[in-house]
Every structure is written in structure tokens, then in C-alpha cells.
Write a protein that binds this DNA or RNA. Structure first.
Lengths: 206, 206, 206, 206
DNA sequence: TATGAATGAGTATTCATTCAT
DNA sequence: GATGAATGAATACTCATTCAT
């Protein structure tokens, strides 16, 4: 008792995921060869296949958690009344989820052409579409619809894009959320003047 | 009047570009084999090499026009005073350029991981950064900076994303521009009410 | 005119087929690696892929002629009346075809487990079944049916097996054919005493 | 009465053999991965290695019984005088052995290319050759020799081939044996007119 | 009796690119 | 202006086998 034996279960599986995440981020999913992953880990390619059935399987395993969280949020959203405050809360919770999984979003965004052909890409698209639906108001104007869609998009792509700005990450997240929420809120205010004007549509100032 | 000589250059070069654009869009740059392009054209792979030095070269040729237009806009922006109206005009002109080159943006966005390693991707990133700089105000709050960045982003990714929404393309473009302009404008108004609700929480502004 | 230029079309395709046939015979289809074929030819594996789409494609190309000849024979057989003499002629023509394609039969027989999963194996089985059908008499006894089936089989497997016997090939072929024809003929004679006897069925002598 | 000890040896070894036999039959020896065997048994691949030294060893174990029986028959044959009746009895006993071990014959025949490189294949070939020798008459004509060889062959390949014919298995076996015996018997009758004739050697019909 | 983890050598296939003609 | 033939380097994946526990 009180045995000090080392754990029988090695942590190789976890280490594969870590290295894969890193390399997928740095080089993209397609351009990352399994050999690179195994080399970095000091194991053989075949070892990867002991832990994962395919290369895609490694990728999928990385997204399991995120998928679960998004599904929970969607389920929650469906149980709520369709009110602006609920939608704002939805956006806020999205913001948290997205930022927690920031590296995964990088991969998702940077490898779209590749992931679109994979279940992982389709699943994610479906979930974002479900969330987007929850934000939409029926029978609203095109302007409103574009704004609703854009509000989620801002979070989605913004998460990925604001990293290069200086500043505290949490502050930046909140600033991004603020912008997105504004977009969403403005879509729910009756007065959305059909904006368009001179020179390619810039609204006349003043 | 007008030249009477028929063009000596066959249109194969152009046809290669057309097919390449189509396939890069449908399948991604990396997953499109040169054989697919040549097959669709009814020529051999080797024929492509008569017209273009490398596969990347085909891609680059597709982006020449867009690059030129963006450079012109950046140059124009630099000659203008740093005023909100100028920035709004900048956004509007961007909107036009982006929408005219919509398919190229699809490629850019969907193939980021790949294009980041290529000159074409870096050049574009540089240009967007230059435009983003033109929108920024010095010494502004983080909130303002995020919004400025987001306004351009909205245009950039939105162009790509609103295609799945119903509605007239031009109307959608203007709606998207309106949202972006709003974001930009709000960044230049002192009062940035922190919109957001409970939980996940935007800090209440004093 | 009277140009002495070497042929532009290299004979590589043919040489691939020759080497493949040889190695498939010596080692079996599955155990023959494409690398072995290309090595023996002094080209790279990729060169094989210029001439054939897949490994299976090389195999298939080897069987094209044989398939055609068997189809012609089957077609011929179907046009003839169902008489013993016709069947004997069928067997005789089979004998010629089989012996001409002897190496292919070796491959077919020795690699059954593998080829059964490939079109080449199925196609061949179908053709042999069609020939076997042409030899059968309707409403004949089990004894007769087994003999008819066996007569073709004798040719099929015998072709492959008598090679190790000494003697002139053509003589051996005729001897094999004679045995097969006997089997077929006896199936068409009324008197097929239900053979069976003592100790596991040896016919009682004399 | 009887031993009261339960068998210490688990039946895993037997179960491995059963599953292996089934899969070797269905898919061929080479295409059956050890993982498939262990999966079907609900054990790990490594477990197989506790019971058998190699994959080939599993195969070999399957053929032990058949080999013994054939050796006994050969030994018996060698002790007998070289008479037609003995040869007929030899054929009859062969028929029984072959039919009892029908699945093994399927494997042997369908995997020749593979098994030829293995002891199991060579051993079997040797035994069949020994049996064939026992059937042969010294100084007989080519025709007679081909017939003797063919008679055994008919049994060997026929066993495998008549399964697709309708009818009672035992009846079919006897019919096959009858054909084979006829071939053998005719080889021992003096008059074997050198059959050959017009058009690829069909005997002229009376 | 068995397993978890890993290996090493191999396989078919793909692709951008080259070059003599 | 284009082709036929070929290359070299890479890739995902499979499999029998080993061994400490």
C-alpha cells in the first residue's frame, strides 16, 4: 500500500494531442505529416495508430469538448424564450466558449477548405448555424438579419483576429463582445434606416 | 480605327485561370491537383507549365488585380486627412473592392493555413493590416481599437459569410457595410456604453 | 522519308506487363510489390502509374485478351445446337485457349483468394460458369452433371498441373483433352451405373 | 469414475483455430489480419502469440491432422502391391480424406501462391506428389500418365469445385470419385488410341 | 493467461515538376 | 504552343511481431 509505482497507462495519447494541436496550428492540418508528430514525440508513426484510428481521428478528438459545450449552449438556447436579453446572454456565453477554445478556432478558420470535406468541419458549421438561428428574429428586415448574422460572425472570426492587438486578453474579449452585442441589439431596434448613400454607399455624414 | 490584328496569344492562359479559380474555390488550393485543371481543359499537365512557372504562379496571377486595387486604395488613404468621414469612405471603397473580388476572398479565407506560407497570403495580410492601420486612431481606448479592427473584419469575413443569406447581393453588401460603418463610427464617439448583460460578463461602465 | 528515328512511343507499357506477369507468376499477385516491378525495369514506381492507374489495372490488362477470346467462344457456343459433338468441339476450343494463356491460368489458380475480391477473378469465374452451362444437359442425372462439370475442370486445373509431367506440351494437351472429352462423352451415354461399392465407394472390379 | 479434474487448458487455443479457419476461408490467409481474429474472439492480438508462435503457426496447426492422415495413406499405399485394384482403393480413400478436410482444401487451393512459399504448402504438394506416384505405372504411355495424374487431380480440385452443384454431398462425392476412377482405370487398359483430330484436336465423331 | 504499448518494415498511391521532342 | 514520359519525394496507413507487466 502506498505504492509508488509509475502509472501503467502512459500519457502518450495526451501528448499526441498536444503536439498535433501545436503543429496543426503552426502548419495547418493538411501540411502536418504524421511523421512530424511522431518525430517530435520520439515515437514511431505506428504508435500514433495505436492511439488513433486515422489522422482525422486525432483532429476529431481535439474538438470533442468544444462540440459538447456548443451543443449544451444550443440546447439551453432552445429552452429559453426568444427575447433580446436571452440572445445577448447567448452571445456572451458564446464569447466565453469561443475564447476558451481559441486555438481550435484558429484551426477551424485557417483550414476551412480542408475541414469542409471532413465531419469536423461540417459538424461545426451546423452548430454555428444553429446558434445563428437562435439569434435571428422571424420576419425581420434584411438589415436586421445581416446584423444578427454578423454579430455571431464577429465573435467567431474576431476571436481569431484580435489576438494580434495589444492589450489584456480578457479586456479584448469583452470589447469584442461589446461590439457584437451592439450589432445584435441594433438589429432589434425598430429604426434601421436603410443605410446607403453616395460613392459606393457611404452614408452622408452630418 | 482600332487594331486589326487578331490576338496572337491564344486564350489558353485565361482558360487555365478560369478553371483554376473554379477548382480552387470548390476544393481548395492544396486539394486541387494540376491534373484536374488540365483534364478539365483537355490539355496535358505539361501545357500548364508553358503558361505558368509553378502551381503557385497560377494562384498569384489570380490575385494580381486585387492586389493592385488594394494598393491604390491604401495609397489614397494615406494621402487623406485622418478623419472619420475619410475612414468611412475607406470602408465603403473596401466594401466595393471586396465584393467585386468575392471569389478571391473565399479562396483567401478558406485556404489560410496554406496561403500563409505563400507570398500571396502574406501580401494580402500586409495590405489588410495597412488598411486596418488607416482606420485606427492613435491613443484610442482598447474598446475603440477593437471596434476599428472589427469593422474591417466584418467586411472581410462578412463578404464571405452573408452569401448564404437570402436577399439581393447589393442590398446585403450595403447592410454589411452599414454594420461595419456603425462599428467604426461608434469607435469615434466618446461614449462607448458597454453593452452586455449578466453572467459571462461585460464590466459595467462607470 | 525512310526515317530511322527511334520510336517515340516507348515500349515501357509492354515491358511493365512482361515483368508483372513474370513476378505475379513467381511470387503471386499480392506478394509482388510495385517496387519490385519498377526496380526490375530500372524505372521509378511513379512511372508505373503513368502507364496504369492502379496495381490491379496492370493485372487486368494482362487478362484482356483471354477474356475476349472466352467471350467469343461463349457466344459461338450459344449459337450452336445443344449436341454432344458441339460440346466436344467446345471443350477442344477451350483446350486451345487455356493452353495459349497458360501463365494466366497459373495466376488465376494460384491467387484465387486474392482475385476473388477483384473484378478480374469474378469475370473469369462468370465466364467459366457460362462455359460449364453450355456443357450441361438439362434434366440429366447427378452423375452426368458432375462429369460435365468435371470435364471442364479437368481442362482448367489440368492445364496448370500437367506442366510438371515430362513430354511434349502439345501431346500433353491432347491427352488432357482426351480425358476431359471422355468424361463429357460418358455423361451423355445412357448407361451410367450408379457407381459405389465397398470401402468408401470403390467400384467392384470385374 | 473418470477424472475429476477439470481441464486446466482453456479452450482459447481451439477457439483461435476455429476463427482462423473461418476467416482464412472467407478472406484468404494473407488478407486475414491477426487483429481480425483477435477481435472476433474478444482478446488482444498479443493473446494469439501466447498460444501460437507466429501467424503461420496457426495455419500449420490447422493442417496437422490432414497431414497425418495423408502420410498414413501413403505409407499404406507403399506397402501394397502395385495393382489397379489397390490404386482404385487408394483413390477411394483419398476421396474420403479430401472430403473430410474439405475446408482445408479450399484454403490450400485458394491460397496457393501464398502457401507455396510456406512449409504447409510444400508439405502438401509433396504428399500429393507421393500419392500421384503411387497411382502411376512405370513405362506407361504419356496418355496413361496424364490420365493417372488427372484422376487424382479431379479429386483434389473437384472436391473444391462441386460444392456449387446441387445434390447430396455424399452422392456428389461418389460421382466425382466414379469419374476419377474411370480415368484411372482407362489408363490401365491397353488401348488408348492417341486421341487427336481436326480443329484443335476434337476427335472425329463416328 | 493475457494485455497495453510500441516498433520496423512495408505498401499503394499522389503530386508538382522537368525535359526532350 | 504543347505533349509523352518519367522522376523524386512525400503521405496515410497496415501488419506481424515483441515485451514488460
Amino acid at each position: 500500500m502506498g505504492s509508488t509505482t509509475t502509472p501503467r497507462r502512459s500519457n502518450t495519447r495526451q501528448r499526441i494531442q498536444d503536439v498535433a494541436l501545436k503543429l496543426f496550428l503552426e502548419q495547418g492540418y493538411e501540411k502536418t505529416a504524421l511523421r512530424e508528430i511522431s518525430d517530435e514525440l520520439g515515437v514511431t508513426k505506428a504508435a500514433l495508430y495505436y492511439h488513433f484510428k486515422t489522422k482525422e481521428d486525432i483532429l476529431v478528438s481535439l474538438f470533442l469538448d468544444l462540440g459538447r459545450k456548443m451543443d449544451e449552449l444550443i440546447a439551453w438556447g432552445k429552452r429559453q424564450p426568444r427575447e433580446l436579453t436571452v440572445k445577448q446572454e447567448l452571445l456572451a456565453r458564446c464569447s466565453v466558449i469561443f475564447h476558451d477554445a481559441a486555438p481550435l478556432f484558429d484551426i477551424l478558420i485557417a483550414n476551412q477548405a480542408t475541414l469542409d470535406a471532413l465531419s469536423v468541419g461540417q459538424d461545426f458549421k451546423d452548430r454555428v448555424a444553429a446558434l445563428s438561428d437562435l439569434l435571428q428574429e422571424e420576419n425581420s428586415s434584411l438589415n436586421a438579419r445581416v446584423r444578427c448574422a454578423t454579430s455571431l460572425l464577429t465573435l467567431h472570426f474576431g476571436t481569431f483576429a484580435i489576438r494580434q492587438l495589444d492589450g489584456d486578453p480578457e479586456e479584448k474579449r469583452l470589447a469584442l463582445l461589446a461590439g457584437a452585442t451592439e450589432l445584435l441589439t441594433s438589429a432589434h431596434e425598430g429604426v434601421l434606416s436603410g443605410v446607403a448613400g453616395p460613392s459606393a454607399g457611404v452614408p452622408p455624414e452630418g
